[in-house]
Amino acid sequence: MNDKSDPISEAAFKFFGKMTASISHEIKNVLAIINENAGLLEDYTLMAEKGKAIDPERLKKLAGKVKSQVQRADGIVKNLNKFAQTVDESTGRVDLNETLDLVTVLSGRFAFVQGVTLDRKQPENPVKITTSPFLLQNILWLCLEFAMEVSGEEKKVGLVTEKTETGASVRFTQLNGLIARPSDRFPTEREKALLRALKARLAGAC
């Protein structure tokens, strides 16, 4: 992944950068909330030292808020760790459901900022495939990014995994704004290169 003239390497670098920047932004937000809650606890302590009565329930509530933000940060870091580990192996056996779940979670902030709801239909069974875990995530993100762009007025994107005769598929549904977009917007050479590397193809609306 060190040749930026190669469209796959370039796409991979951009994807990794975009995701880690978003995750660091999320962590910064959590740290900021912890910082303010801890600061408020300190403020109350100083007030108590000066003789002002502080309601213990208020202190308990603040401590609870700190705990809940620590749990939020833990979840974010666990996802970052899962994401980072996908670079480790060029090809492996992966569960498409788990991969799509992770891409959906990692894309949560982007969806939130755009006001898009991601509707991940929970499948009953695993959909195992052999592929490059990182490149799979990359193409799923690029499809999802485009899907959010063309989600129309409803601003909702459905994500469905299915087993097929030859492997597996991911469907992005409810793309009501798709017709209004120029046809050369997607897929670009970048997506085409990733699809070739993954021996995958775009079908239907996507």
Partner: peptide, 17 residues
């Protein structure tokens, strides 16, 4: 700030000052 808890807590701390 879209982080409601951050905005509310910061506002309270500012009001204490």
């Amino acid at each position: 700030d879209d982080e409601e808890e951050l905005a509310a807590t910061l506002a309270e701390r500012l009001s204490l000052r």
